[in-house]
Design a protein around this nucleic acid. Structure first.
Lengths: 216, 216
DNA sequence: CCGACTTTGTGCGCGTGTTCACAAAGGCTT
DNA sequence: AAGCCTTTGTGAACACGCGCACAAAGTCGG
């Protein structure tokens, strides 16, 4: 379930404040969800709450971590060390959650060899060998859009089945390979869409039509 | 609808190849969705297809752009110029979609005054004035997690109603304010979750239970 | 001018996820 | 020890989005 990481983060901040137990109501508020939904989510991975009291924070942290597979370490490769790739390589939020930055790859010869955050950037020609040798299980693609599908194919051919894609293209992958996409431009466009609606809807015939119909 | 930006990008690449018309089947494939879904989405903003032929690419680009509010320019402020903020400031995908990088703000005095991508970083003390003067309508938060809610409150108080949040916290905002969240760590955790299931599920009683039940 | 073919637009059934509301369960107080 | 109070876990209604499948509509060839 995609909400478990959010719960986990909320639980971590509670743990830092030495909170021992938490009710579904409180945790749901911290995670920004409905309390019934949270209880149902937690019940799906076995029931670890005590009626009348709530959930024990530490125990819940352990259970969710285990469910998410964070009790083991995952080796991550970042491919493409442009602005975004560098930001990702330097992002501290990875290591703290069981993700090990294991390899950096780029095609640009002026970038290859550079040391970023304690790792040396390798040339993308060595992709297959690096993935095998470093035991990479997750690849992060921060390459230009036109190169993304080709790099993706090579990564998949090397046995990686989890990809985080920052390139603004729809990747085609075989069954069994998971791709998650982050597109900054799309996020802004969605905000613009809502912003525009708040400002009175799109200009033109549609707006006039809508105004005539629902009196907005 | 959150899929419109994806359609729009697919249409732009088609337009670059001088494609004049496109069927729902082709466009759906390019966008990675079901063709019936695509047709239904497009019909929701008025019907612009010709039966037996398909959709005219240029016209559809215009209609979707207008629906998304991309026919007008939006001024964006980036708050927090760490690694991620810098990457965002230098990201070319914004300007090409009607988003104008209008202001950069940071609290760190060693960063304030720096020029990034043709803009000077202002001190966050001037937040309210900058937002008003530059006509900021969208704020991008790339600040450390502990500072996010406070900065968010100030941004909202200044009249901004659209926020793109990169800090790993759940922001609380008044009704009428839209927040979209991008959390890189959560994306990786979701991938790890699926990766683990592919590898045989979590170790422990749950796995044994699941194996006993569904024979996986 | 007509018929066959292509493609859109959409009614409908289905499965998933969400929320309400309540009974069961455990702790706490007296 | 007994009853009250809090909180979990979950059954059931609800809502939503998805995709199939088909009729309407428009094009193109003869």
């Amino acid at each position: 379930m995609a909400r478990l990481p959010v719960y986990l983060r909320a639980l971590h901040t509670l743990a830092e404040r030495d909170v021992v137990t938490v009710s579904s109501e409180e945790l749901a508020a911290a995670a920004g969800v409905n309390s019934a939904k949270l209880r149902k989510d937690l019940s799906h991975l076995g029931s670890y709450g005590t009626r009348g009291v709530g959930y024990e924070v530490q125990y819940l942290v352990y259970q969710i971590s285990r469910e998410l597979g964070l009790t083991q370490d995952w080796s991550v490769a970042i491919i493409g060390l442009g602005n975004l790739g560098r930001a990702l390589a330097g992002y501290g939020g990875f290591a703290s959650r069981g993700f090990r930055m294991a390899a950096l790859l780029d095609a640009d010869p002026t970038i290859v060899g550079e040391r970023i955050n304690g790792l040396t950037v390798e040339h993308i020609d060595k992709l297959e060998r690096v993935i095998t040798d470093c035991g990479i299980s997750i690849a992060v693609l921060a390459v230009p859009a036109p190169a993304a599908q080709a790099v993706c194919d090579r990564v998949v051919a090397s046995g990686v089945t989890s990809i985080l894609n920052f390139a603004p293209v729809v990747l085609t992958v075989p069954d069994g390979v998971d791709v998650r996409k982050v597109d900054l431009s799309i996020e802004l466009q969605i905000l613009a869409f809502h912003e525009q609606r708040k400002a009175g809807g799109p200009a033109g015939v549609e707006q006039e039509y809508l105004e005539a119909v629902d009196g907005q």
